[in-house]
Every structure is written in structure tokens, then in C-alpha cells.
């Protein structure tokens, strides 16, 4: 379970938010929305441990994520603005490295299956630089299929994806929630997920 208490975020001179409290239980999706510059990305970077909050604490199963660090990373997958795809590596190589480092199962068949499911069949061995923006993000999202983490923190996962891909990712999210996973995401699109509880936080 992810808990946030009294969280405060300061960027430069501006206080983006303060005194934020919420928790995410298994099977719950937290949809963070708000206008540009309201601190959505900052919040997500804090939740995954990249940024330190100005005030307040983030706890995973009752322990501060600062002290858990690697143990927390075992249970969490972050998908940021930058896809984290190396242009010079092929789709398959990109996925393999990501999955290996994340401690997932990097057997070749599994990797190919995942790419196939993301609609990249036949493009596994192309260098990422010839893939379109949306295809690169699909490669990055294929990680979610292979890393057995409980908490997914997704920053605008639907950007640059086409309608079928959006549907597929939503399907993926609902499966994850159904299996007791947790999701925190930001998106400007409407979230349409059949299973699980969807909660919202509005930042302004």
C-alpha cells in the first residue's frame, strides 16, 4: 500500500502543493489530473523516489521509500515523459536490458511475446531510431508486461499512442488492477477502465 502524508512540493519560488494526503490500496487506480504546471510530474517523480519532497513523507507498506530504496524499486515501475529507449539499440535489445535491470524474466520468448502483444511483431530487430514516436513508447510500455511489480507509476502513458494502443494499455491496466496491482497515473484523456476503483486527485 502506498501512503502519502502531508506532502509539499516547491519548484523554485513557487509552492505547487502542500499538505497532500492520500493512499493507494491494492486494486486501486489513482488518476492525478490538473492543468499544465500544476505539479503532476513533480508528484509522480516524488512518488517513485527520484525527487525528494520539500516536506512530508511517502510510505510503502508503512516504511518510508527513502529508507527502502532498492526494495521499493523491486515493487514499482515508473514510466516517465522520456521513454527511456536507446535509439541505437533494437526494440528487442531495449526491452531486454530494461527487463534484466528491473529484475524481470528476460527469456527471449517472453520478450517477443510482449512486443507482439504491443503490436510490434516484425519490428523486434529494427533499431529504435527508425520507429515512430508511438512505437518507441510501445516498446517502453512492453516492460509492464514483464516486470512483476505491484505499483505502476505512469506519467502520461497514452501520449503519442493510437486508438488501438490506448485501448490495449487500458486493458493492461485493468488486468493489473484486477490482480491486486496499484496504478498512479496522469493523463489528459478520459480513463476508461472497467475493473478496479478509480480515484481522482485534482491539482491546481
Amino acid at each position: 500500500m502506498l501512503e502519502v502524508s502531508n506532502l509539499e512540493c516547491v519548484r523554485g519560488d513557487r509552492r505547487l502543493f502542500a499538505g497532500m494526503n492520500f493512499s493507494v490500496q491494492p486494486g486501486e487506480l489513482l488518476h492525478v489530473h490538473g492543468p499544465n504546471g500544476s505539479g503532476k510530474t513533480s508528484l509522480l517523480r516524488m512518488l517513485c523516489g527520484l525527487a525528494a519532497p520539500a516536506e512530508g513523507e511517502i510510505r510503502w507498506n508503512g516504511e518510508s521509500i527513502r529508507s527502502l530504496r532498492e526494495d521499493y524499486c523491486k515493487e514499482m515501475t515508473y514510466f516517465g515523459h522520456l521513454a527511456g529507449i536507446k535509439e541505437e539499440l533494437t526494440a528487442l535489445e531495449n526491452l531486454r536490458v530494461a527487463v534484466q535491470l528491473a529484475g524481470g524474466d528476460s527469456a527471449e520468448d517472453g520478450l517477443l511475446d510482449a512486443l507482439d502483444r504491443m503490436g510490434l511483431a516484425g519490428r523486434e530487430d529494427l533499431p529504435a531510431k527508425v520507429l515512430s514516436q508511438g512505437q518507441k513508447r510501445r516498446v517502453a510500455l512492453a516492460r509492464l508486461l514483464l516486470c512483476p511489480t505491484r505499483l505502476w507509476i505512469l506519467d502520461e502513458p497514452f501520449t503519442a499512442l493510437d486508438v488501438t494502443a490506448v485501448k490495449m494499455v487500458q486493458q493492461l491496466l485493468s488486468e493489473h488492477l484486477h490482480n491486486g496491482g496499484m496504478v498512479v497515473l496522469t493523463t489528459h484523456q478520459e480513463v476508461d477502465i472497467p475493473a478496479g476503483t478509480v480515484r481522482r486527485i485534482h491539482l491546481n
Binding site: 527520484l50 526494495d71 524499486c73 515508473y78 522520456l82 527511456g84 529507449i85 536507446k86 530494461a98 529484475g103
Partner: peptide, 19 residues
């Protein structure tokens, strides 16, 4: 750093000094 893979590395369960 620019393409975001470093960010991902920092969030892997592997100890950072080893990476």
C-alpha cells in the same frame, strides 16, 4: 540522461554503485 534511460537505471532494484 537525455533519453531517460538513466532515470530508469536509478529506479531499478540493482544497487546504483554497481551500475
Amino acid at each position: 540522461y537525455r533519453d531517460g534511460t538513466l532515470e530508469q537505471m536509478l529506479l531499478t532494484p540493482q544497487p546504483l554503485p554497481v551500475l
